[in-house]
Simulated assay, not measured.
Amino acid sequence: MGWHTDERGDAFPRAPTQEEWEAMGPEERARVVESLPGEVTWDEMAMPEGDRHFQGKVQAMDALRGYFKRQQRKVYLGAELPIYYPGERRFAPDLLAVLDAEPHPRQKWVVSHEGKGLDWVMEVHVGGDRKKDAEYNVRRYARLGIPEYFIYDRARQRLEAYQLASPEARTYVPMEQRQGRYVSRVLGLEVQVEEDRLRFWSGNALLLESEELIARLEGLLLGVQHRAEEEARQLEEEVRRREEEIQLRQQAEQQLAEETRRREEAERRLSELQAELERLGHRGG
């Protein structure tokens, strides 16, 4: 169970049909899930497309993962994860999202076992034949009932988006841009290509990637440090100014005390002179 041959005679793993799945007991289901490989073969994958392909999906995944974590919403995000729909040939999209699913690490996604299929898929295209992403996958993902499918063409810096008009529909309808952005009802976000990056927006708020958040936090920290240093400098200046004021006041008090002492001394001497004059006047009389 779990291995089939396609129309070309190639053997490849495939999940049982839903009818076969429902006829199994828990132990047999567990054995089937365990037997399905958690990787795909080179024959099933496109040729490696370098850093631009890797960065295109990783940066998008990073921004989405941080956003949903901050929202405290359970969303599973995967990249190049083997996907097993009932009775279908497996595939591994560049990026996928499943809403309201536990975000713990997985080696594969078996739809019958998980209880639901994918909600959102994105393929990143850099070079080579676009037919797989732009034609074949458009038909396949729609037939599987995946609500939204995005194609990020990094070579042309273009974005295409498709959606099912209804949950029952099995043919995609191209999305229309609104002010240069596609509105993803599944993610609750707006998506656009901007300056060689795929950008996600929540209203007017741009979803930052980890490196951008770190850079912003470092900038804020640097600003805080500069303000703290300036406040410390101003405090030191204030302390110095007050010490100078205290010193001046002490000097003024000392000067006043000295002047008071001199005045008292002068008054004492004046009193003594007056007394001496009076004494001499009495004697002369």
Rank of each mutant, 00 (worst) to 15 (best):
D133V: 09
H104Y: 15
Q72R: 08
H125M: 05
E259H: 02
Y149E: 14
V224F: 15
E211N: 07
E237K: 13
M61L: 12
D129N: 12
E80Q: 15
E194G: 03
E237C: 04
R227S: 14
Y152K: 10
G127V: 02
V191H: 10
D133Q: 10
R14W: 06
L208Y: 06
L99W: 02
L206A: 11
L144C: 14
A228L: 06
L36V: 11
S271R: 10
G219R: 13
W3I: 12
R65F: 04
Y141K: 14
I246E: 15
R269A: 03
P174I: 15
G117V: 10
D51V: 15
G2K: 05
R283E: 11
R241N: 06
P167S: 06
K132M: 03
E80I: 09
E135L: 11
E19T: 11
L96N: 04
E212K: 04
Y84M: 07
A205D: 14
E49C: 05
E243C: 04
R178E: 08
R178D: 14
L206D: 04
S166N: 07
W109A: 00
H226T: 15
Y76F: 15
E148M: 04
R139E: 14
R185L: 10
R158I: 10
R29E: 07
R70A: 05
R216I: 03
R178N: 15
I146S: 02
A134W: 05
L207T: 09
R261T: 03
Q59A: 04
Q55C: 06
G180K: 01
A97H: 00
P13H: 03
A205M: 02
R199D: 02
V58S: 12
I151S: 03
G203Q: 10
Q250L: 07
A23Q: 13
Y136G: 09
Y76R: 11
R158S: 10
R14G: 05
F200W: 09
H104A: 10
E80W: 04
R279T: 13
E88R: 05
P82F: 08
Q71G: 02
A79I: 07
E148S: 06
V138F: 08
Q157E: 14
K74D: 14
L217N: 15
Q177H: 08
Y67Q: 03
E259S: 11
L118Q: 09
G281A: 14
V224R: 06
R89D: 01
A63M: 02
P16H: 06
G285S: 08
H104Q: 09
R178Q: 08
E259Y: 01
E258M: 12
P147T: 00
R233M: 15
P13G: 12
F150Q: 00
E218H: 13
M61F: 08
M47I: 09
L64K: 03
E238D: 03
R170H: 13
V126T: 08
K131M: 11
P48S: 08
E176Y: 02
L81F: 00
S271D: 12
D43A: 08
Y85N: 13
E28Q: 12
R31L: 11
R283D: 14
E253H: 03
R261P: 00
I83F: 11
E27L: 09
Y76C: 11
A275F: 09
A97R: 00
H53W: 11
